[in-house]
Simulated assay, not measured.
Amino acid sequence: MAGAWRGRMLRAPDGQTTRPTSDRLRQALFDMLAHAPWAGHGVLDGARVLDAFAGTGALGLEALSRGAAEAVFMERDRAALATLSANIAACRAEQRARILRCDVTAPQRAPAPCDVMFLDPPYARGLVEAGLAALDKTGWLRDGTLVVAEVASGDVLAIDAERLAERQHGAGRLVIWRHGASRPAGSLTGL
């Protein structure tokens, strides 16, 4: 990790059910957010963050480490939940972190919309689109929420928004956009 918890190592559950975001990809993502003209160093300062399909919680914890005020973690896998709880405790982030044991495609109503959302579901299942639809319907998104999705390099992502950035990293690809920001006429429908 970087930020306030620089050098902290996170645990990952045994088995193949959870695919943690690699340290290299996480570093590339947060460097991109810090230096992009559409985000910048202050993008996480005081932000409310949602880490959907949280797994180990690496993305939400990194956001907390870099200045986010609070993070909500959604996960349903029992082994991942145990690891997530241990990682939050190891970072002493219990006061700023909340775990929801739920399916992202059927979440509870949000107490307030989030400023930044990370979606890192299992690849090739269409869960980014299904998760976004459910999260939007239950109030987790607002116009302007910065959405970061990790998908497989060959996955087609059907979103109706202008992409702010898209970066290939090994088997994964990061796609970033603002919720509610429509795609300009004539742009691509899916990548």
Rank of each mutant, 00 (worst) to 15 (best):
M1R: 15
M1K: 14
G3E: 10
G3N: 09
G3C: 10
A4D: 15
W5G: 13
W5K: 14
R6K: 04
R6Q: 10
G7C: 09
R8T: 11
L10S: 08
L10G: 03
L10T: 15
R11H: 12
A12P: 01
T18E: 10
T21L: 03
T21M: 07
D23C: 06
R24I: 01
R24Q: 12
Q27M: 08
L29Q: 15
M32I: 07
L33R: 15
W38F: 08
H41E: 13
G42D: 05
V43S: 07
D45M: 14
R48T: 00
D51M: 03
A52K: 04
A52D: 07
G55E: 15
T56W: 00
A58I: 04
L59A: 03
L59R: 04
G60L: 03
L61T: 01
A63V: 04
L64C: 12
L64K: 11
L64F: 00
S65I: 02
G67Q: 00
A68S: 09
A69Q: 00
A69D: 04
E75K: 05
D77Q: 13
A80R: 02
L81Q: 10
A82H: 12
T83L: 05
I88Q: 09
A90L: 02
C91K: 01
A93M: 14
A93N: 09
Q95N: 11
R96H: 10
R96M: 12
A97W: 00
I99M: 04
I99Q: 07
L100P: 06
R101G: 01
C102E: 15
C102T: 14
D103R: 09
V104L: 05
P107E: 05
P107Q: 09
P107D: 08
Q108F: 08
Q108D: 15
A112Q: 12
A112C: 09
P113Q: 12
F118G: 04
L119C: 09
P122F: 00
Y123G: 06
A124S: 08
G126V: 05
L127W: 04
L127P: 00
V128C: 01
G131C: 06
L132C: 08
A133P: 07
A134G: 09
A134C: 02
D136P: 02
T138E: 13
W140K: 00
W140A: 08
D143V: 06
T145M: 12
L146S: 12
L146E: 00
V147C: 07
A152K: 08
D155E: 08
D155F: 05
D155N: 03
V156I: 06
L157C: 04
A158R: 13
A158Y: 11
L164N: 02
L164E: 03
A165P: 09
E166Y: 14
E166S: 10
Q168A: 13
A171G: 02
A171K: 13
G172R: 05
G172D: 12
R173M: 07
R173E: 06
I176H: 15
W177A: 03
H179L: 14
A181K: 14
A181H: 08
S182L: 15
R183D: 00
P184A: 01
G186W: 15
L191P: 05
